[in-house]
């Protein structure tokens, strides 16, 4: 960070200034002129929070995607199908046992196993054939989507959050003052979304710690940089591949339960999340976990602010971010090179 500040003083200044403006926008009570200009503070702060929580969900999906790509050079276009599968499994588990919490480990393990099977049965035999692997994942996504449609039909499913997470909580952010009594009004926000944001942060930080502080993480990072050297130094690369593929797929399954709770699961969601992961990793940089976090928050914010402030063109805003990033940093914001 210090190096970045030394190298790009102007940009650092702009980022710091933007950060202060953002903090002021969140905590200050807006003057009337500003409200006239861009609407109520409540709308703005809600869009901001929704964008960040949506970014958290996107991060869960995209981090597995980018991890698998970074290590195995495998663009897993069936990642969205794994997300959808996780959502359906989570729904069935929480429906049968009535336990929302139980849905997470079951979906994680089940989808992770599917991912391991895919790696062992399919991708191991096609090592190094990038395009063929990508085409096969497209085929798998077509087949899985149809099988899921066959089993669960075209209905919308919603996973019910437990009681202690339903309903809004009052946050400490003041949005205005009551006209009658002069008491401050605080922003109310759904508890489930806060929980999801918290979980995504924990998983993100945990992944970063595992990657940067443990031996397995060291192997994975070494594999990203130079697979052949890692294998030559006696590490069982194939085992690491299976584990990472399973973990990445499991994260997608986990994200499916999360998505099923605060949105809904239905056919077509697989493609939606695959595309958002694609945009996230293109923006953030392929194979980079911090890049995935940055890209996810950017895309989530762009979608939410877009849908609030320019409803017709919200997709274009997301797309515009991607084009700008590609034009100036073809390898993504955090990508190397």
């Amino acid at each position: 960070m210090k190096r970045y500040m030394n190298r790009h003083p102007l940009w650092s200044l702009i980022f710091v200034a933007a950060g202060f403006v953002l903090i002021w926008l969140i905590f200050a009570i807006w003057p009337p002129e500003l409200i006239d200009l861009i609407g109520k503070k409540k709308v703005f702060v809600n869009a901001l929070f929704n964008g960040i929580t949506l970014g958290g969900l996107y991060f869960l999906v995209a981090s597995g995607f980018t991890l698998i790509f970074g290590l195995m050079r495998n663009v897993n276009l069936a990642h969205g199908s794994l997300y959808l599968l996780g959502g359906y499994i989570g729904y069935e588990v929480s429906d049968l046992t009535g336990s929302w919490v139980l849905a997470f480990p079951v979906a994680f393990i089940a989808v992770g196993l599917v991912g391991m099977l895919l790696q062992v049965l399919v991708f191991r035999h096609l090592d190094g054939q990038d395009l063929q692997q990508t085409l096969i994942t497209i085929g798998i996504s077509i087949v899985v989507a149809d099988v899921l449609l066959w089993i669960w039909g075209g209905d919308f499913y919603q996973i019910l959050a437990p009681d202690f997470l339903s309903g809004p909580v009052e946050t400490f952010i003041q949005t205005g003052v009551k006209r009658s009594s002069g008491e401050p009004i605080f922003l109310k926000y759904p508890a489930v979304r806060l929980a999801i944001l918290f979980a995504a942060t924990v998983i993100g930080v945990g992944m970063w710690l595992i990657l940067n502080r443990t031996r397995i993480g060291m192997y994975v990072r070494a594999g990203v940089d130079d697979r052949e050297m890692l294998a030559a130094s006696g590490v069982r690369v194939q085992l690491i591949f299976v584990c990472v593929f399973g973990f990445g797929a499991g994260l997608a399954g986990l994200a499916g339960v999360v998505g099923g709770t605060f949105q809904s699961i239905a056919p077509g969601e697989d493609m939606r999340f695959l595309l958002s992961s694609l945009v996230v990793v293109i923006v953030g940089g392929m194979g980079s976990i911090p890049g995935a976090a940055l890209g996810a928050v950017l895309v989530g914010l762009a979608e939410q602010f877009g849908s609030v402030y320019m409803p017709t063109y919200s997709v274009v805003l997301t797309f515009l971010i991607m084009v700008l990033v590609l034009a100036f940093r073809p390898k993504g914001l955090m990508g190397r090179g």
Partner: peptide, 8 residues
């Protein structure tokens, strides 16, 4: 779709 996907 299943048929096409499997064939593919």
């Amino acid at each position: 779709k299943l048929l096409v996907g499997l064939g593919f």
